[in-house]
Every structure is written in structure tokens, then in C-alpha cells.
């Protein structure tokens, strides 16, 4: 599979130019055909430095459709669950299933930094001072996934959420399937629109990953 910058050779130059305007300290470079953005992100208020983070942003093969991955490469953040940082320094900006709310294929790298990354970093500064996340946080693992889908489906019934996720995992879903809501009706006669809408937004591979967090008892009852 060709990478995004091989398909469109001008895209890399455009990305570099775009970053130069808003984040000139960030360096765009390539290593083994993977494009990385690396350097300091200074958070400021009225021109004064609030804090600074040295990060590495890895752009996926299918950028900009695929979402970049961000790592704290300077060891600035503790690599613990409470800070939403993996042991390898990767930041968990949100439940992957809800990236579409903040990042669309039309989003630029600047949108990504401003919408997803900067609030995360701001929250880290606040946490260091108060021990609290100021803009909310998801529970870890399956619980956080349930929190997200509860908002989408307006239910806290984990079995419903589990069935819904299973439909999202299918590359294609069928209208004659039983509705995830438990009504006994066919999807086409019940919540078809709900599945269709989210199927467009959440890549089925992402849904599969989320489903892998489901506890054994849900799998047993499926």
C-alpha cells in the first residue's frame, strides 16, 4: 500500500508549509517512509509561556484519513494511566471511536493540534497543580468505551452497546439483522439509521479494537 505522501508528493510540502505558519519550531522529517513531526509545543497566554511539551507526532500511512499518533518523547509526562499516557509515551487523546467528533478527513494537522492535542496538554498542566482533569476524562478500557457509546445511544445497557459495536465491526451490515436495541425487530425496521450513521464514522477496525476490551461475560451472553 502506497503511503499518503507517495500518492500525492505535493502533500508533504503543503504540510510543512502549513506547520511553518502556526508551529514553526516543529520539524517535519521522514524515517523509513514514515513522516514524523517533532519538536516543542509552547502553550501560551497573553504571550507568556504557560508550559512547553516536546512531542513527536507520527502520521499514519493513510493520513489524513487516519489519525496521527502522539508521543511524549521527552519524558515530561508520567507514563501512567491516571495521566492517560501509555508506557511508551503515547498519549491517549480520546476513545478512538470518537475521533470523528474532533477530526475529520478534511481536518488539517493544525486542527489536530488545536482541537485534540492542546486541550490534552492544558489538562495535564491543570492536573499537575490540582490532581484533577479540568475538561473531563473517560474511564480506562471498556468502561470508557461504554461511556462514549452511552452518550451516542442514550443507554447504559452494556449488552445493547456490545451488540451495536459488533455491528460496527462488520465491514458491511445487513438490514435483516436483529436490532441491537433488543426490540426483536429487524434493523431496517428499527435503529437502522443509528447503525448506518456510526458505521460511516467509526472505521470497522477501530470498532473491532474497542470490542476487544469487552469483558468475558458479555461475550458469553452474546
Amino acid at each position: 500500500m502506497k503511503r499518503w505522501h507517495e500518492i500525492n508528493p505535493g502533500a508533504l510540502a503543503s504540510l510543512t508549509e502549513l506547520l511553518k505558519q502556526s508551529y514553526p519550531a516543529l520539524l517535519v522529517y521522514m524515517k523509513e517512509s514514515i513522516v514524523f513531526i517533532r519538536g516543542p509545543i509552547d502553550l501560551t497566554n497573553d504571550g507568556k509561556l504557560l508550559d512547553s511539551f516536546t512531542l513527536e507526532i507520527e502520521l499514519p500511512k493513510n493520513y489524513p484519513t487516519g489519525v496521527p499518533t502522539v508521543r511524549d518523547i521527552a519524558g515530561r509526562l508520567p507514563r501512567i494511566a491516571d495521566r492517560h499516557v501509555h508506557v511508551d509515551g503515547t498519549l491517549c487523546l480520546c476513545v478512538p471511536d470518537e475521533y470523528w467528533r474532533f477530526y475529520t478527513p478534511q481536518s488539517t494537522i493544525i486542527d489536530f493540534i488545536r482541537t485534540l492535542l492542546e486541550p490534552f496538554l492544558m489538562a495535564q498542566i491543570y492536573y499537575e497543580k490540582t490532581g484533577k482533569m479540568p475538561f473531563g476524562e473517560r474511564a480506562h478500557g471498556w468502561r470508557g468505551i461504554v461511556q462514549f457509546y452511552s452518550e451516542v445511544l442514550q443507554t447504559t445497557d452494556e449488552k445493547v452497546i456490545f451488540r451495536f459495536l459488533r455491528y460496527l465491526c462488520a465491514p458491511q451490515f445487513k438490514g435483516h439483522w436483529r436490532c441491537h436495541c433488543g426490540s426483536g425487530l429487524r434493523l431496517r425496521n428499527c435503529h437502522y439509521g443509528e447503525v448506518h450513521d456510526m458505521h460511516q464514522k467509526v472505521p470497522f477496525k477501530t470498532a473491532r479494537l474497542s470490542l476487544s476490551y469487552a469483558p468475558a461475560e458479555l461475550w458469553a451472553s452474546a
Partner: peptide
Amino acid sequence: IVERFAPSYSNAPKPWLGRK
């Protein structure tokens, strides 16, 4: 100062962690 940003981040992503 971070608290002052709260209104503009009311719909900010909620961080998570993939832990099984």
C-alpha cells in the same frame, strides 16, 4: 489560567486509556 480556558474547551476530547 487553565480554568479560564474551560469554556472554550467545553466540548474538548475526554482523554482515555486502552487498558484491558
